[in-house]
Amino acid sequence: MVDKLARIVTEELNVWYGAHQALKSISLKVEANEILGIIGPANSGKSTFLQVLNRLIDLKPQTRVSGRILIDNQEIFGANIDVEALRRKIGMIFALPIPLPMSIFDNIAYGPRRNGIKKKSMLEEIVEESLKAAYLWDEVKDRLSDSGLNLSGGQQQRLCIARTLALKPEVILFDEPCSGLDPVSTGKVEEAMLELKKNYTLVLVTNNTKQASRVADRTAFFLMGELIEINNTQEMFTVPRDKRTEDYISGRFG
């Protein structure tokens, strides 16, 4: 089998919060245009893993990171890395939808504006494109100047996706994006993810093993900071190699 282009490679990645080790020598690859699902019980290090990838972990006090993370062959903890450019390249969707307290338009134009795009026509174009890609355009096109806070939960989450798409990222990280949503909204977000895969590489952290089995191409199982198993989703859910994976996906703990 020919190795696909690996977008993200982590080698022996360790993360400590103070004395507590949250990730223990994680080595894995995320391939281009796949959805990598990451499952595992609470506090298994899944969200930490996402936060290292776009260096949001820098915000947390007293953290220490060792090992290497290569994104398109560039070491992201290396010297002279433009963290802001990195975060534009690796977008992030949070567990709870957090619209900034401003209009729908301004929410989506936020990233491009900070990157120096000032022209109104250009911003309008980006906003429309992003909203369409997140399946929100039809619902909000007549009220772009409304506050983003006035949208429903599902709409807010799609707004957040659109906001990330406006950065024209290459990788999108989803941190339990449906944990606060009802089944219908969850379905819409999942649909959007499957569509996004055509143009982006996605990493999806989820508490919901069923969700991983529905959308992920490959799935990784994290437990207490360790990577227990990574495999094709179908294989992992039918014939898990590790006993602990089997226990987890069959709901025996977690």
């Binding site: 560039q74 002279n80 890395i81």
Partner: peptide, 10 residues
């Protein structure tokens, strides 16, 4: 591409 460049904003 991710290398930091000094510009007027920075």
């Amino acid at each position: 591409m991710l290398k930091k460049r000094w510009n007027h904003k920075k």
